[in-house]
């Protein structure tokens, strides 16, 4: 087993242990915190696929995070009010079944990512960063000014959505749902990375001409990766809405795009478990610094800056050492 594998296992088991320790200590709040880490890590796992593997620096993943959140919020609201979502051309009603909501969140994010990708992937470098940002801003302003679902005030989910056979209101059970989803997506990421598709994606990043010479269009490979990446982040958004029992346009803001990116970079770009390590560290810092000083953002900034400047390769870079392959 390589050092990175050991650390990955430690991270996975460590996250799993937190809520149970919290329960033993009678501190249920830490379960919520661990759930938050799991969900935000999932958003990062999604971005990591585009960013780490495909080299696509998306500064607009908040769009998918927010869309996933709104999918959950809107369906739940309609279910709560017992109003159909739309009655024509066929009847679609709301739902508070998590599985269905996840599916909608995934499909919605994927479709939007496909459309954005069609345009954005024609560009590269800074242009790509900025055009993804622009699309996210478009959706953000749309959400703020669209009155039907609360606009800037957002949308409350009065009863957390349900999962067959489980009580999602129980923090531990909800944590476990999020944890399993996170692990499943990590597993999918790992399989994708080691598949022929993953190999093609990495070649598309490093040497697109070579890939084109083999008859595979780099554009298509990137587009597929971008869509999968967005779908995972969208799924995280749906879970995040359920965690907070609330969605609002702030999930779509460019700060969120920046934060998701921070999780990935903090943990180590392209590392499978990087987003988990990064999200965990970020949340813990936000939580403790916020309790110590009202100027916590100042210190958070300094810490982040030091990480970028002096710790190349993120947390997993320090712990697991440099990667063998390039």
């Amino acid at each position: 087993m390589s050092r990175e594998t050991v650390i990955n296992w430690a991270l996975a088991l460590g996250l799993l242990a937190v809520p149970f320790l919290a329960l033993m200590q009678g501190e249920p709040f830490y379960i919520t915190l661990a759930t938050r880490v799991a969900i935000l890590a999932l958003a990062g796992v999604g971005l990591n696929l585009a960013l780490g593997l495909g080299g696509m620096v998306s500064f607009g993943h908040a769009a998918f995070f927010g869309l996933g959140g709104y999918a959950a919020g809107i369906l739940a609201t309609h279910a709560f009010n017992q109003e159909p979502l739309f009655a024509w051309p066929f009847m679609v009603s709301g739902s508070n079944d998590m599985l269905l909501i996840w599916l909608v969140a995934i499909v919605l994010s994927a479709v939007v990512a496909f459309l954005i990708g069609l345009i954005a992937l024609r560009t590269s470098g800074v242009y790509f960063i900025m055009i993804t940002l622009a699309f996210a801003q478009m959706i953000y302003y749309f959400a703020i000014s669209w009155p039907a679902y609360g606009g800037e005030d957002g949308l409350s989910i009065y009863v957390r959505n349900g999962f067959p056979e489980l009580n999602t209101l129980d923090p531990i059970q909800f944590f476990l749902i999020c944890y399993v989803v996170l692990m499943a997506c990590l597993f999918i990421s790992a399989r994708l990375r080691d598949s022929r598709f993953g190999a093609a994606l990495q070649v598309a990043r490093q040497n697109p001409e070579r890939l084109a010479a083999t008859g595979i269009a780099p554009f298509n490979i990137r587009l597929v990766a971008f869509v999968i990446s967005a779908a995972m982040t969208g799924l995280a958004g749906a879970l995040f809405a359920d965690l907070n029992r609330f969605v609002s346009p702030s999930m779509l803001s460019w700060h969120v795009s920046g934060e998701i990116m921070i999780f990935v970079i903090l943990g180590g770009v392209g590392r499978l478990f990087g987003p988990l390590a990064g999200a965990a560290l970020f949340i813990v810092m936000e939580f403790y610094l916020g309790g110590i000083t009202e100027h916590w953002q100042f210190f958070l900034g300094i810490i982040l800056l030091c990480v970028v400047l002096f710790v190349r390769g993120g947390i997993l870079g320090i712990l697991a050492g440099r990667r063998v392959h390039g």
Binding site: L51, I129, M261, I262, L305
Partner: peptide, 13 residues
């Protein structure tokens, strides 16, 4: 660009 974005994001904070 990734490191630049993150470092200057930290500078904003």
């Amino acid at each position: 660009h990734l490191d630049q974005v993150l470092a200057t994001f930290a500078l904003i904070l």
